[in-house]
């Protein structure tokens, strides 16, 4: 008897917590995205809801429109931010993959006693505050910053490189803060690999490079896929990096949403942008969950 109740309680408490504070809020985002902007507190008038009873709802349904969405599709700023986010997230995922593969491969190939210290050394910057890591790059990248001083001092360049407040700075920021998320799954899948496969390939006359492409690379695909999801999905909605390093000219959907919400106080448009971002990401999130369950056991 008590086992059954314990079981129900165990399931019910976290279940309802997540239902109330994770899933249900999306219904409100959807509702507000369909509301009209207004000068009020909170700044919108709902088009759906029973505040004025059923007759009020029916009245409002007659005038129902997709104002925020029409507004978004008609304004090039929003379309550009969505396309730009897709581009920046894809390119930086690729950059993280290339950089992360070199590091993960190097770690697996290093002497065994180095591995734990190296893993710890990876964790330290990763656990350091995200804002601090991004902030550290301002001093390096700005016009009179560390990098420019160094290159000017060495005589490599004659005038300072303009990197700060450009998309390049955003790429550097994303690779710097997200590539650890690529290295961990890559390392895990390379570490599990059976080394005798490579020895067999070598014995059979396979060159090192073709052994890499025919054995190591395919066997690390689960890690590659997991790493790409882990970088791409949050990079799509990134706000801090384009805001601090990207300047005004780098528009990304997360940043546009933040500005609509906090500066323009246009809650319906911000909500509509959130819904669009969610629609773009729901596919990758579900695929990632399935991938995770298949390769890393049930959660």
């Amino acid at each position: 008897m008590n086992l059954r109740w314990l079981r129900r309680l165990f399931i019910a408490i976290p279940f309802f917590w997540m239902l109330l504070f994770f899933l249900v809020p999306f219904a409100f985002v959807l509702k507000i995205s369909l509301s009209d902007a207004a000068r009020a507190r909170p700044p919108f008038t709902p088009q759906l809801g029973l505040e004025d009873g059923w007759s009020g709802l029916i009245d409002r349904l007659r005038q129902f429109d997709l104002e925020s969405y029409v507004w978004i599709s008609g304004d090039s700023l929003y379309v550009t931010s969505i396309l730009n986010s897709l581009k920046i997230a894809s390119v930086s995922t690729l950059l993280c993959l290339v950089f992360g593969y070199f590091v993960a491969y190097g770690m697996v190939r290093a002497p065994r006693r180095w591995r734990t210290p190296m893993l710890l050394a990876l964790i330290l910057p990763f656990w350091t505050s995200f804002l601090i890591r991004i902030y550290a790059w301002i001093g390096i990248l700005k016009n009179e910053g560390f990098l420019n001083n160094l290159l000017l001092g060495l005589g490599v360049i004659d005038e300072p490189l303009i990197i700060m407040n450009t998309t390049t700075a955003v790429y550097i920021g994303i690779v710097y803060s997200y590539s650890t998320l690529m290295i961990f799954p890559l390392y895990a899948s390379l570490e599990r690999m059976d080394g005798t496969l490579l020895e067999a390939a070598e014995d059979l006359g396979c060159s090192r490079l073709s052994a890499f492409w025919q054995i190591t690379f395919p066997l690390s695909l689960p890690g590659i896929l997991a790493g790409c999801f882990l970088v791409f999905i949050p990079a799509m909605g990134e706000f801090v990096i384009p805001d601090i390093l990207g300047g005004t000219q780098t528009v990304m959907i997360g940043k546009t949403m933040w500005i609509e919400f906090f500066s323009n106080r246009d809650w319906p448009v911000a909500s509509a942008l959130a819904i669009l971002l969610l629609l773009i990401l729901i596919g990758p999130i579900l695929l990632f969950q399935r991938h995770h369950e298949r390769h890393l056991g049930k959660i």
């Binding site: 504070f21 994770f22 809020p25 999306f26 409100f28 985002v29 507000i32 999801f229 882990l230 999905i233 949050p234 799509m236 909605g237 990134e238 706000f239 997360g254 949403m257 933040w258 919400f261 809650w267 911000a270 909500s271 959130a274 971002l277 969610l278 990401l281 999130i285 990632f288």
Partner: peptide
């Protein structure tokens, strides 16, 4: 994996 801007906005609403 959800971008935090979405989680933050939805909780606020």
């Amino acid at each position: 994996v959800m971008p935090v801007v979405i989680t933050g906005l939805s909780l606020l609403l």
